[in-house]
């Protein structure tokens, strides 16, 4: 049974890491995938951007199985936050899904937070899955580093950003993407004048940090250059029964909190 909640997935234009061509953004596609598994074809896709641009990337999102998507018309370099917030509020969104960071532009990852602040909704970042939605509360699985997961309950409506640990997006069908209807909603653009003073250039490779040896004497430098193993500081247990030795190991594991 599909939950009675309006789910919105926000779309952005991605950038292929090697070729630099526009593509379906990886995490946004995951947001669409999660939305599709939650509510199927009732999912709403929203993109805020220029209507003049090539819409082939947006059609790639729609090609995942949706008949239409909404385009909030904005000028280039506009701050999309006010119109997006207004749109989501007017449409009584329950869950808003998106990627953690855009693959183009500033990619500060601030949009979900600013939206949440503006709408007064809670935000959960880097989720892997939405397990269940019941009585206005969603059970969400957060993706933590090192493959760990955390279960969290959030009250609807909320904003969630998708981690790469979320299930991979389905393939997009070119034909149905072409047939999808793009609904252009004209909205007010606010110019983001702070960005006007920025100097943008292609990324320079960052300098690698050198290994600096802080040695006062030649002997120390020689040692640092030739030393094989750091070692020596460790505790060695030779005596004792296997049970005692195992206890020592177990205590360390507990202290490091790797055993829960």
């Amino acid at each position: 049974m599909l939950p009675d909640v309006k789910v919105f997935s926000l779309l952005s234009i991605g950038r292929h890491p090697q070729s630099g061509r526009a593509r379906r953004a990886e995490q946004d596609a995951r947001a669409v995938e999660l939305g599709l598994t939650l509510v199927g074809r009732d999912l709403n896709l929203v993109h805020a951007g220029s209507a003049q641009q090539d819409d082939s990337v947006l059609r790639q999102y729609a090609g995942m199985g949706l008949p239409a998507l909404t385009l909030l018309e904005q000028e280039e370099n506009a701050d999309i936050l006010p119109s997006l917030a207004k749109f989501l509020q007017n449409n009584q969104a329950g869950i808003v899904l998106m990627g953690v960071r855009a693959e183009s532009g500033e990619s500060s990852g601030m949009l979900p937070y600013l939206l949440a602040e503006k709408l007064g909704w809670p935000i959960v970042s880097r989720i892997a899955d939405i397990v269940d939605i019941k009585e206005g509360v969603a059970d969400v699985l957060l993706a933590l580093p090192r493959g760990q997961r955390r279960a969290v309950q959030v009250a609807l409506p909320f904003i969630a950003t998708l981690d790469n640990a979320a299930s991979a997006p389905r393939q997009t069908a070119y034909g149905s993407g072409l047939r999808a209807k793009i609904e252009v909603v004209s909205s007010e653009s606010t110019v983001d004048d702070l960005t006007l003073n920025w100097q943008v250039s292609p990324a320079k490779p960052r300098p690698k940090r050198m290994k600096v040896v802080k040695a006062k004497t030649a002997a120390d430098r020689f040692k640092a250059a030739t030393a094989k193993l750091a070692g020596g500081g460790g505790q060695v247990l030779k005596e004792g029964t296997p049970a005692e030795k195992a206890q020592a190991i177990f205590d360390l594991l507990l202290e490091e909190k790797v055993i829960r």
């Binding site: 950038r15 890491p17 693959e103 500033e106 990619s107 920025w198 943008v200 250039s201 990324a203």
Partner: peptide, 14 residues
Amino acid sequence: VCRGASASLDIKRE
């Protein structure tokens, strides 16, 4: 100096 656009741009700002 910040990275932007999936680490393909350098943005110099205040």
